[in-house]
Design a binder for these strands. Structure first.
Lengths: 125, 125
DNA sequence: TAGGCCAGTATCGTTGAAGTAACCAGTATC
DNA sequence: GATACTGGTTACTTCAACGATACTGGCCTA
């Protein structure tokens, strides 16, 4: 069974939101991570992504579908059910995303320290 | 001795310009790669980056400097000479950039094929 | 004295991605 | 009859990044 997604998965207060890596557009990387453990529904994705609007989520998912990263399966039920799932191609991105996360864990403190240091220089000018 | 940069280093016609990975803003990743083999001067960077305007190059380099990715060394000569060089932090990004390049080489054809396939669907609708 | 080299600034214009807010159809439940 | 749920759509607006173009200052060379 697939566990529900942690709503704090992408806490905007988390310092790693300053990471200099981006997969595709703003949301693609996060969506790939959300789908890592199995298929998810539209509204299920909205929870951890928090501030994403349905318009942008739709557009991003359509682009990912076009590029062969996810599949979209609509079930003829009521209320409607649509599931998004990673393809093998989409799944191959996880390695890179994890590499970027590891890099961030390791070096983000250094970036933030450098940023603070240069702020101080400008503050006391 | 450091070899001069290949002006075709970032050919905009190269299909890998469609890669879904981005380091920092639009130019940061390319600049890191340009500096991989040693320090470079401002105008030296402009050549392979082709379409970058001096304004944007300056802004990007300043941001990279602030984040501790590059150092800027100005020599009191004439004509003026300024050299940009990767820090250890900036250098640590090369691993990730290479991983992204490898991924692209491997999977970009699949993305482009998926894109073409979905184009056909919409064309004949 | 005219122009070139280098490392940028200054000013203005463009554009596209993202956000805001409202709305929709069909069913089910209260 | 009113409301809620799901998976979106539509129209309008905003904003930051990016780009185009021109210009600067000090020195050197022709």
């Amino acid at each position: 069974m697939i566990e529900p997604l942690d709503p704090d998965m992408f806490d905007p207060m988390c310092p790693s939101s300053a990471i200099p890596f981006q997969i595709g557009d703003k949301w693609t990387g996060m969506i790939v991570r959300c789908l890592a453990d199995g298929p998810r529904r539209f509204t299920e994705l909205r929870v951890p992504l928090r501030t994403i609007t349905p318009k942008v989520l739709t557009a991003t998912l359509r682009a990912m579908q076009r590029d062969g990263l996810v599949t979209r399966t609509a079930y003829d039920e009521n209320p409607p059910r649509v599931e998004y799932e990673l393809t093998e191609l989409g799944r191959s991105m996880l390695i890179l995303i994890d590499a970027a996360r590891t890099w961030s864990e390791q070096y983000l403190p250094a970036i933030l320290a450098a940023r603070r240091a240069s702020e101080e220089l400008t503050t006391f000018r």
